[in-house]
């Protein structure tokens, strides 16, 4: 057989191997040792459809709500606010908002955490049982915003959603200071545009570590989030009027980074 035909057969055989593995129901290895599948499905999914999915919810909601006189839910809520280190920044002004509007709030900061941590441990279930919230706010993603394994992370986002069940929740995206591969959009599509506050367009002063906003900037961030939370753009609009004064932060629990805690054991 001629060499060029052999090379063609080599390419075709490799393609068939990747295709069969991609279509198979099993996966070899798991997590870090997983042999991942080539995304043949993406080839057969027209890009136009994808863009429609992300564009549709927000537009229709605005149209539907435009002609009605809008009132947010004014009943006091038990808010559970959790996520990564950004919660440390947003959680402080959030307590002042909660005090002003009659809500109770419990915030849990899990430093360095990602969607995987909250999805694959029972930490979230533990706090849901402990606080029994009626409203949940998530601020998670700053440690994985440049992630490229979007599909894998989508599964973790879905696991978090499953844990939340029927609880009303909103997801606040981290401020995005670098280029990303679609992580923010993935969360937006997974939770729905009306349960997603996109912080990536906000301009905030960065703190000395350059990873987080300054505490002053985080107050402005919270003002914008609160304004959205009580607007018709949010699926569960609740009263979030701006507080005149700051309250002392007493309901902010801090969890150590997962890896460090493991090492200490």
């Amino acid at each position: 057989m001629k060499t060029d035909i052999k090379v063609l057969l080599l390419g075709l055989t490799a393609l068939v191997i990747f295709l069969l593995y991609s279509l198979s129901s099993f996966t070899i290895g798991e997590d870090d040792t997983e042999i991942r599948k080539a995304d043949f499905l993406a080839l057969a999914t027209p890009a136009e459809e994808e863009s429609l999915v992300s564009a549709l919810p927000a537009d229709t909601i605005h149209e539907a709500m435009a002609e009605t006189v809008f009132q947010p839910d004014t009943t006091p809520k038990k808010i559970f606010f959790f996520g990564d280190s950004m919660v440390d920044y947003l959680g402080r002004p959030f307590e002042s908002y909660a005090a002003k509007n009659g809500h109770e709030i419990e915030s849990v900061v899990w430093f360095s955490s990602t969607t995987q941590h909250w999805a694959q441990t029972d930490t979230l279930q533990y706090f849901l049982r402990k606080y029994d919230p009626s409203y949940v706010v998530i601020c998670l993603g700053s440690n994985e915003v440049e992630a490229r394994d979007i599909k894998r992370r989508q599964k973790w986002v879905e696991e978090i959603q499953q844990k939340l069940g029927d609880l009303p929740y909103v997801w606040v995206s981290p401020p995005n200071w670098t280029e990303e591969e679609g992580f923010t959009n993935m969360i937006k599509e997974a939770v729905g545009a009306d349960r997603f506050f996109d912080s990536s367009h906000l301009s905030m002063e960065r703190g000395p570590d350059h990873k987080h906003p300054t505490y002053e900037a985080a107050v402005g961030w919270m003002d914008t989030v609160a304004s959205w939370m009580q607007s018709p753009a949010s699926r569960y609009p609740i009263i979030m009027e701006k507080p005149e004064e700051k309250v002392r932060v007493t309901h902010l629990l801090m969890l150590k980074p997962y890896k460090l805690r493991k090492k200490k054991k």
């Binding site: 490799a14 440690n143 440049e146 394994d149 979007i150 570590d209």
Partner: peptide, 27 residues
Amino acid sequence: KLLIFVICVQLVINFRLESVQPFIYAQ
């Protein structure tokens, strides 16, 4: 040759989706 080719392409598939940890402040 096929085996080497498949392994190399698989490495691309795996590492294309692998992310480097952005911040090491936790350390």
